[in-house]
Amino acid sequence: MFGLTPDEITALWLTFKLAGTVTIVLLFISTPLAWWLARSRSSMVAFVSALVALPIVLPPSVLGFYFLIAFSPQGVIGQLSQSLGMSGLAFSFSGLVIASVIYSLPFVVQPIQNAFVAMEQSSLEAAATLGANPLACFFQIALPNAKVGLLTGAILGFAHTVGEFGVILMIGGNIPGETQVVSVKIYEYVESLNYTQAHRLSAILLVFSFIVLFWVYLKQKQAGLSGRV
């Protein structure tokens, strides 16, 4: 396939496996969190919003360093995993999933939150007037109306995880078949001056990233036009 070596195919498979797992986890976490951020008047909203958005401005190496400390046998998460009989999280696929969920969180929360904020309150108020409880309003009114935001968040979360490098290198290192994703494989090729293979993998990610962004902007434009009709 595209002249890829078995190691490159494994790296691609591992990359998309990681991105898919992280996206599913993020949707379950981000949707109720985004709903709370969009609806709550608590004084904690600003603090939680800043905490969620922190990975956007924080260097990945800094985030990866603190994850590495937390995942170590002496760290809080490392000690907890050991007490539960789990293997170490550092330099493992499970550790990559946990770190990637935190790192990609704002890219999923923010589109969903924006969709909830832009939602017309009249439909929610009408449902409440008819006796619908808050849970029913959320599942029957809010989620269907926020489907573009949900889809956008899922796509951006997936794509952002595919493009991770700093956090993954700090947490997972470069273990073939376990933590060696495409971005790390490209780095390995560049280090060994193997630019031909680096270019091939980079081109695949470049085309993938453009298609994802084009689709997201197209859907957002279509949603905006339909909202004016």
Rank of each mutant, 00 (worst) to 15 (best):
I175E: 12
L225I: 06
F28E: 02
A132H: 07
E191V: 11
V184A: 03
W35D: 15
A53F: 00
S49C: 10
L58T: 15
I56K: 01
Q74Y: 10
L206I: 15
L213H: 10
V148E: 09
I24P: 00
Q113G: 04
V184W: 00
I186M: 10
G75E: 13
L213S: 12
F16G: 03
S104N: 12
L218Q: 08
L84E: 08
G163F: 08
F158L: 14
F91H: 14
L169H: 09
Y189S: 13
S209K: 02
G173M: 07
G166N: 03
A136G: 00
A126I: 12
S192V: 11
F2M: 14
L80Y: 13
A118L: 09
Q74C: 05
I204V: 14
T10R: 09
L37V: 03
G20T: 09
T5N: 08
I9H: 09
I155Y: 04
K147C: 06
T21I: 10
A46Q: 03
N194L: 06
G3D: 08
A223M: 02
G78K: 00
K147M: 11
Q197L: 12
S202P: 15
M119N: 04
M170S: 14
A46T: 02
S83Y: 11
V181T: 15
H199Q: 13
S43R: 03
P176W: 09
W36D: 13
E8D: 13
A142I: 07
T196C: 07
I24L: 04
V109A: 05
S72T: 13
P111Y: 01
I77T: 02
F158S: 06
V22C: 06
I112E: 09
A11G: 09
N133H: 06
L68W: 00
A146T: 07
T10M: 15
F67R: 00
V117R: 07
H199K: 09
S72F: 04
L54F: 07
A159S: 15
Q140S: 14
V148T: 09
V57K: 05
L96M: 10
T129W: 02
A115Q: 04
P60N: 01
Y195N: 06
F47T: 10
E164D: 14
T31D: 01
F116V: 05
M1P: 11
A154Q: 01
F65H: 12
G78C: 02
G64R: 05
S209Y: 05
V45C: 07
L205N: 07
V109W: 00
A142N: 11
S122D: 12
P176C: 12
R41F: 04
G149N: 01
S30G: 10
V97F: 00
K221M: 15
P6H: 10
G153C: 03
V57W: 08
V212H: 10
G149L: 01
G166D: 09
F158Q: 04
V167S: 08
T21D: 07
M86Q: 03
L68G: 05
V162K: 03
H199A: 15
T31K: 01
V184R: 01
M170A: 15
N174Q: 11
E191H: 10
V207N: 04
L26K: 02
S81M: 14
G149H: 00
L225Y: 04
F208R: 13
I77D: 05
V101P: 11
T23S: 15
V190D: 11
L205H: 02
G95V: 01
L33D: 07
T21H: 00
I98R: 00
L26A: 09
A198Y: 03
F139S: 10
Q197C: 13
M119T: 05
